[in-house]
Design a protein around this nucleic acid. Structure first.
Length: 471
RNA sequence: GUCCCCAUCGUCUAGCCUGGCCUAGGACGCCGCCCUUUCAAGGCGGCAACGCGGGUUCAAAUCCCGCUGGGGACGCCA
């Protein structure tokens, strides 16, 4: 009894939006928290704008973020007859009437009303006509109560009161015979026994028009929870001009799905001061009481930080799995990866402290994936000076004759060398770094050597020494 | 224009329901210091907010009213 049943109901008219993912996530969390059912429903009644590709993209995005659904995907276009049937039931029951006003006429009247500063709702002129069987194309309108009030008990915002006088008779069946969004939603939510409607608060104003529909159809009215919007940095609703808004884009930018989900859950929900949540923790603690009722600005900087946290704390093996496709995409083949002793996984510990995204790893790993790296000329000019040449040469000789290539051994040899020469570690390490990586920035020098392997280490130091001699 | 929602550091937020523990806490970012072979990471510290005005109360970030500001909705789109 009273089983929790929730749904995520996107319309497949484009990509899966970051705001959509958050809506899906909150539905999913609530379902998992309460042992309920999470349903994926595709709202594709707008046949002109819905595409199969978009449906696939939505499902891919949800799979990537780990939001698995228990039922569906249910497509509204498979249920068109059902909506028509229910609409006709309403007509027969005296809850609806045919309207022969054309969209063009309505548009004109709306404009006029607006110009006069009046409310732009439908004037209801077909309500009294009592057309029993229309000869011209006609839409079916629901007779919406005009007196009294409708109270929405929102789980997030509390009670919201609407005067029914602001409502107009909404179209439930278009003149082409297809149901409208507001109608198909109610039929589906009713028939699927949806217990909680969790959606963006841009739907708040739809609710008082949907509630009488639930009642006329003989369904029990679900509970509602309207999530606040996600805004861009200019406080306007998040859109393309704020940058990436598609989940897929974040995948491509090297974000980990867990990190994106973690960032998104904190956008509007909190559990004390906690910032990082495992999925289990989110599921355990999720509640509507701690969902913010005010909108939140999407902050890419913090998302990056969360991503970095996950990169640093996940098992290197898992990060390596996520990273591999990025390396391949960047053009590094198996042979390139095989150059690194230990493979991709060996890359993770030395680079993860300096990588906020998987793309940062690709960039940071470049010197170790190739046979001969690209030399930063400015770095070479600055650090590979003639006086350092013999020192590099000596170090290369030491490494060559020593069979132990361990980090400890390398460190001991390096320290000995530095002491004998009476130099500061930095004076040697930095030229060495440039010789080994072609850059001034890298992981610790011994980590670098481990990633290069003995042969390439010696070879690059020698090349560096040669270069230094002629600088 | 009409209706609806919202209002704590630049941003995400704790606290608000059940006034006193708030000299308003945490996080991102920013700045400084420490650590240090580079860059990071890490540690320590700093800057920074209850939108305004009225009430109610011994006491208000917390309750009430107004204002202002922001957002959303007003389609035969979803």
């Amino acid at each position: 009894m009273n089983k929790v049943r929730v749904r995520f109901a996107p319309s497949p008219t484009g990509f899966l939006h970051i705001g959509g993912v958050r809506t899906a996530l909150f539905n999913w969390l609530f379902a998992r928290h309460s042992g309920g059912t999470f349903i994926l429903r595709i709202e594709d009644t707008d046949r002109d704008r819905s595409t199969d590709e978009a449906i696939q993209v939505i499902m891919d995005g949800m799979k990537w973020t780990g939001l698995d659904w228990d039922e569906g995907p249910i497509r509204q276009t498979d249920r068109l007859d059902l909506y028509r049937e229910k609409a006709m039931d309403l007509f027969k029951g005296g809850h609806a009437y045919w309207c022969v006003c054309t969209p063009e006429e309505l548009e004109i009247r709306r404009k006029e009303a607006q110009a006069r500063g009046e409310s732009i709702k439908y004037d209801g002129r077909c309500r009294e006509r009592g057309i029993s069987e229309p000869t011209d194309p006609a839409a079916l309108r629901f007779i919406t109560p005009q007196e009294g009030q409708t109270v929405l008990h929102d789980l997030i915002k509390g009670d919201i009161v609407f005067d029914n006088s602001v409502l107009d008779d909404l179209i439930i069946l278009r003149s082409n015979g297809y149901a409208t969004y507001n109608f198909s939603v109610v039929v589906d939510d009713g028939l699927m026994n949806i217990s909680h409607v969790i959606r963006g608060d841009d739907h708040v104003n739809n609710t008082p028009r949907q509630v009488p529909l639930f009642e006329a159809l003989g369904f029990s009215v679900p509970q509602f929870a309207h999530l606040p919007m996600i805004l861009g940095s200019d406080k306007a609703r998040l859109s393309k001009r704020h940058g990436a808004t598609s989940v897929l884009a974040y995948q491509e930018m090297g974000y980990l799905p867990e990190a994106l989900v973690n960032y998104l859950v904190r956008l509007g929900w909190s559990h004390g001061d906690q910032e990082i949540f495992s999925i289990q923790e989110m599921v355990e603690h999720f509640d509507f009481k701690h969902v913010q009722s005010s909108p939140a600005v999407f902050n890419p900087e913090k998302l990056k930080w969360v991503n970095a946290q996950y990169i640093r704390n996940k098992e290197p093996k898992h990060v390596a799995e996520a990273l591999t496709p990025f390396l391949q995409k960047a053009g590094y083949d198996e042979a390139a990866i095989a150059r690194i002793p230990g493979g991709v996984e060996a890359l993770i510990p030395p680079l993860r402290e300096r990588s906020e995204t998987l793309l940062d790893f690709v960039e940071g790993a470049a010197p170790y994936l190739v046979e001969s790296m690209t030399m930063d000329e400015a770095a070479a000019t600055k650090h590979l000076i003639p006086s350092i040449a013999p020192i590099l040469q000596e170090f290369a000789d030491l490494v060559e004759v020593e069979s132990d290539f361990s980090k400890e051994m390398l460190e001991r040899m390096m320290q000995g060398l530095v002491e004998r020469q009476g130099l500061k570690m930095g004076k040697v390490a930095q030229p060495l770094r440039v010789a080994l990586t072609g850059r001034t920035v890298s992981p610790g020098i011994y980590e670098v050597m481990a990633l290069l392997g003995k042969d390439r280490t010696i070879q690059r130091i020698r090349a560096g020494a040669k270069r230094a001699l002629h600088n």
